[in-house]
Amino acid sequence: MKKIGKMGAVLALTLSMVMLGACGNNGGGNTAAKETSNAAAEASGNGGTKTEAKDITLGFSQVGAESGWRSANTKSIQDSAKEAGITLKFSDAQQKQENQIKALRSFIQQKVDVIAFSPVVESGWDTVLKEAKDAGIPVVLTDRAVDSKDTSLYVTFLGSDFVEEGRKAGQWLTEQYKDAAEDVKIVELQGTTGSAPANDRMSGFAEVIAANPHLKIIASQSGDFTRAKGKEVMQAFLKANKDIDVLYAHNDDMALGAIQAIEAAGLKPGEDIRIISVDAVKDGMQAASEGKINFIVECNPLLGPQLMQVVQDVVDGKQVEARIVTEESTFTSEQAKEALPNRQY
């Protein structure tokens, strides 16, 4: 017992020393735990050809690395910062708000020119945003919004409009079935219950197809944005409902799982059951080019170039719009076939 106590004391000492050392390395700034790519980004930023007279530093706090979409998003921001000659201080919040708040505070201390971040959650940002405002640092939101009442706390929100994505999917469907005399039976695979993309893609879609009373959603279940769940739920849909005409999936992965279920049932995806999906990741585009997905609404993670433009404008003192929607397109099967070779993610 005594031995363990001694060992514990030694361990605690070592730990505290390590931590002190780490703090020292950061030059007194108590930065967030993960700022691994800082040095690399800075080095490349300084080394690159600088076209701007003024050196801009951007502090960016990312949600985490939870999906392929998110990694593409991170890469786009890092690459375009390098290209634009902007020094990027990148911090990964690992899906935790407290990490993100810490990162924002450290950005304020380091007196960066602009702060950009994708909020992990919607609420609880007022205090730290106020601190940034008091320090005179403009804040740009990317990808996800905050529910703060005071819109003066941030300059702009740059990101996809999930409701619009749902609307685009609905518009294509109403266009396809505008002469329908019979009921069109639609099944819907929702994203994670309660998440903003799932809610918004559902409401946007429902809003548009309400115009045509023949378009009926006969079943709607959550597939958690995953392939396995998408397949499982679609299997059940196929058993419970006869003659499904259309499948609307909130992301490509669920659609891909559902395609396997449809094929197992001896039906042809894209023909017997028409499939609409959102995201346009590589696997989804592949399926679309094979005619298995009829229509994909793009949800673009590559908002790096647009973000750098906004940052430049903010620093130059130009007026920036309060809401900037990322440039997104839609793909039918034929368009997917053409676009596939050039897809980056």
Binding site: G194, S220, V233, A236
Partner: peptide, 15 residues
């Protein structure tokens, strides 16, 4: 139970 819930169409919020 999982399959039943999908089949009878329980809304995902209360699954």
């Amino acid at each position: 139970l999982t399959t039943t819930i999908y089949m009878i169409g329980v809304p995902p919020e209360i699954t």
